[in-house]
């Protein structure tokens, strides 16, 4: 639920890349993880750092890429965008970064760590998540001002919290949350457990949560449409596979998978 790629795995990855002897520079290194110049086959390991909300879609797309390229292994690290941006600027060996908001992508791009301009591949809007059956009878954004309800919002420091704040300001609602969650999945977990009456999360999170959670769309959500930029990283150990993954996300199949998961086209 809140799984992250453990440090040990990242270290093992580093070691295996080092053992390959190549880096992104060695075009003639046959053992290195790169494309065969003549063919399309991708090999080696592709490491994608992606916002937690992309977990399900990207896992599916990664498996698809692995099926098309039996020599390729796709590893993901799903976490909050800001945590990932910090890890990348601290030298984490990633090939692709997909952020849940432009400012965190800017952190990486401004550090000169993105190869080329980041591209917005999808968008997400906020939705009200309530436990199945909506026991508290929540109907719209105004209910977030009710003191008698147990309500969860994302903390203002993380993207979904910033978007929530924007929506409340635009709607003129004085929210009375009981907890400010550290990321969107944590907020959703509290809805799933029935411990809060409502939380403000992304439409994609509601879609991923299954039957335990119901989503309520609200018109004010249009005030905070969230862009998801993606970029191949400048120090990518496996740039060819990184390009292929970004292309797959932008392709018709990728966009369909995103739409099925509650995302909207940019």
């Amino acid at each position: 639920m809140m799984e992250r790629v453990p440090l040990a795995l990242a270290a093992a990855l580093l070691l295996s890349l080092a053992a390959c002897g190549g880096g992104s520079g060695g075009e003639d290194a046959a053992a290195g993880p790169s494309t065969d110049p003549a063919g399309e086959e991708l090999t080696g390991t592709l490491t994608v750092f992606a916002a937690a909300s992309l977990t399900d879609v990207f896992t599916e797309l990664g498996e698809r890429l692995e099926q098309e390229n039996p020599g390729l292994s796709v590893q993901f690290s799903f976490a909050g965008s800001s945590a990932l941006a910090t890890q990348i600027t601290q030298g984490a060996p990633a090939d692709v970064f997909a952020s849940a908001n432009p400012p965190q992508m800017a952190v990486v791009a401004d550090a000169g760590l993105a190869a080329g301009d980041p591209e917005v591949v999808t968008t997400n809007v906020l939705e009200i998540a309530v436990p199945a059956g909506n026991p508290a009878g929540v109907s719209g954004l105004a209910d977030f001002a009710r003191e008698d309800l147990a309500l969860a919002l994302c903390a203002a420091e993380v993207p979904c919290g910033a978007a929530s704040q924007q929506v409340f300001e635009a709607a003129g609602v004085d929210a009375a949350p009981d907890t400010l969650e550290e990321d969107v999945r944590a907020a959703l977990t509290k809805v799933e457990l029935g411990e809060v009456d409502a939380a403000l999360v992304y439409a994609s999170d509601v879609a991923a949560a299954g039957d335990a959670v119901e989503g309520i769309a609200f018109p004010e959500a249009e005030d905070a449409v969230n862009d998801y930029p993606i970029a191949v990283l400048a120090g990518a150990p496996n740039p060819a596979a990184a390009e292929a993954f970004v292309e797959l996300v932008a392709s018709g199949a990728g966009q369909q998978a995103l739409a099925d998961a509650g995302f909207r086209a940019p």
């Binding site: 420091e157 400010l180 969650e181 550290e182």
Partner: peptide, 20 residues
């Protein structure tokens, strides 16, 4: 949960500050 004054202890404050 995390709410300033009632449940936000220092480790939680540190973690959230780390985000921004």
């Amino acid at each position: 949960g995390n709410f300033p004054g009632t449940t936000q202890t220092m480790p939680l404050a540190v973690y959230l500050e780390l985000q921004s």
